[in-house]
Design a protein around this nucleic acid. Sequence first.
DNA 1: GCATGCACTTACCTCAAGGTAATCTTCACC
DNA 2: GGTGAAGATTACCTTGAGGTAAGTGCATGC
Lengths: 133, 133
Amino acid sequence: MQNATGLAETYIERWSAAADLSGPCPVRDVLDKIGDKWSMLLVMTLACGPKRFNELHREVPDISQKMLTQTLRDLQRDGLVSRHVFDTKPPSVEYRLTDLGHSLIVPFGQLIEWANQSMPSIAKSRVSFDKVA
Amino acid sequence: MQNATGLAETYIERWSAAADLSGPCPVRDVLDKIGDKWSMLLVMTLACGPKRFNELHREVPDISQKMLTQTLRDLQRDGLVSRHVFDTKPPSVEYRLTDLGHSLIVPFGQLIEWANQSMPSIAKSRVSFDKVA
DNA sequence: GCATGCACTTACCTCAAGGTAATCTTCACC
DNA sequence: GGTGAAGATTACCTTGAGGTAAGTGCATGC
């Protein structure tokens, strides 16, 4: 395995190639997704198994119905989540991660890991930075 | 190494533990950072080596001066980037990734990799989704 | 016959991220 | 003395993500 600098160069190369200095960039595109307020929370919640609409709403209490509907539709549009309607009475709807959705969990997990590990350093850095300013 | 579902459960466990159902969550915190429009672009640009202010501006042409200053200050506050003023005439300022900043490159790189690999599937999914709707 | 749960949709409003453009200071060059 | 580059800061404005609240259609339970 390469060291961090080597990796960085590889990635920045691909980034540049992808960005191509203008035009739509797949990375920016994905960042927009994962950067929004709810997508990743829902993906992580669905990672444990399929869930119904109101089940999701109960497990993520601070999301509004509107945002739940909207985020699920976006995730479905991107093929990360699939929607299954069961013709029961009343009809119930189940959401589950697709294979593509599952495949996001590993790289995204790395980032969570990084976040958890780095939080103390970041917090410390902020305190000392704010003290000076 | 565990499979994706196993990993998912591990991560969602930690996510929940960290989020604690309310209060500031380190993951949300980090997502806010990497989710913004410029932070990660700058980190990846700096990954290749230290850069001066206007050098960065030239390499990332579509960022405004205001956002460049602001994003750099935020990155500095979080300890991902360090700022070095050289007392030349005119004084020049160099920005470079800290060790913490470098450590972000690996997990973030995984995500870029995922994005690049998944882009075709996502694009296809969007087309067929939009066709129906 | 009324309330309640499910799975949404719609209209309206707010707030903050980010863009634009002007301004500042110091130095060097011509 | 005027121009231009470096490294910003400031005021103003626009846009859109997301919140709030209400309504919808259907079915079961009391």
